[in-house]
Simulated assay, not measured.
Amino acid sequence: MDILQAIALAVLQGLTEFLPISSSAHLILLPVIVGWDDQGLAFDVAVHVGTLTAVVVYYRQDLLKLISAWFGSLLGKGFNDEAKLAWYVGLGTIPVGLVGISLSDAMQEALRSPLVIAAATIVFALLLWWAEKRAKEQRDTITLLDAVVVGLFQAIALIPGTSRSGITITAGLLLGLKREYAAKFSFLLSIPVIALAGSLKALELYQSGFDILWGFMFIGAAVSAVVAYLSIAWFLKLLNKISMMPFVWYRLVLGIVLIGVFAGQA
């Protein structure tokens, strides 16, 4: 790995982690196009730390309120809207955790096929299109049922190419949530998910005994954090002005490009 590869991959991860366009699809396509070797597990951990830092910093005030309200609910001090939302974030994380644990290494490897990623990119683009067309956007509050449904949809994101943010925002739209609130709940849900995924990758890294190039890791984490923070801010502002259709069309084109690149290698 060189400095250019580290920066490019970190920018790509930071940009695509929170947009509904599938970070896995981009991260598999770029190295193939430019002929790079795999960046390695350590770098994956670093950029996950970066994106986790970005969403925590962006929602730091909300998180402080949620954590305080959650502890308050445990201590019998009431069950206000913030406490409910904190519990719902935890509840929505359970399905993806259970499904992730149940997937064997062979199944995970099979799902990382470029053609599987291409198919998921296209299929879930069409689902997002359908959700956008029938979205009523009536609510900016979430219920217990909403948390369960969005959590179940999030588990589907273990299929690379789905896009975790894309599938959870799709679920929110189908449930009648406003775009901005569906995106906010999606991003709050990402915090425990990214933390768990990053922890598992870090454990794998520790057990593997790989030498770590700390300079590249720092660059990857820092760049992905800055880009992810800006990406979240830009995306939330953009939702006030446009529909989800530009992302739908982008995903469809990306899926077709992936098929074109990898179909001959199947």
Rank of each mutant, 00 (worst) to 15 (best):
I191C: 13
D140T: 05
T93V: 02
A54T: 08
A155R: 01
K184S: 12
L74Y: 08
L75P: 04
L15K: 06
A202Q: 09
A195G: 12
P20Y: 09
T16Q: 11
D146N: 11
V56C: 11
A118G: 04
L254W: 05
A197W: 11
S68T: 14
S243P: 00
A25S: 04
R139I: 05
F216S: 00
F153E: 05
A225Q: 05
I28P: 02
F43V: 12
A119H: 03
G151A: 10
T121G: 08
W214K: 04
L85W: 03
S186E: 09
M217D: 04
A266M: 14
G76F: 04
K178H: 00
S113V: 07
A10N: 12
A10F: 10
S190K: 12
S231Q: 03
I117T: 13
I219Y: 07
H48C: 09
W249G: 01
T170G: 01
I7A: 01
T143K: 09
V248L: 05
S104T: 15
L188H: 07
V123A: 09
A135G: 03
I28A: 04
T93S: 13
A222L: 15
R134I: 12
L145I: 10
I94Q: 06
Q108D: 13
F79N: 12
L127K: 07
L254P: 01
Q138M: 08
V11Q: 07
L9C: 01
L29C: 03
L200G: 14
I33E: 13
M245Q: 04
I232L: 11
G76T: 00
E82T: 00
P160V: 03
R134W: 06
S104D: 10
Q13D: 09
L239Q: 12
S186L: 10
Y59A: 12
V49E: 05
I194L: 15
A263T: 00
M1Q: 06
T16I: 04
I3L: 06
F18E: 07
R164C: 02
E204M: 12
T143I: 07
Q207W: 08
I167Y: 01
V34P: 12
K65F: 00
G255N: 07
F185P: 08
V56D: 12
G264N: 11
A266G: 15
K178C: 01
T121N: 15
G14Y: 07
L115K: 00
L103K: 12
G90P: 08
D211L: 13
A106P: 03
E82V: 00
S208V: 00
L74W: 14
F79T: 00
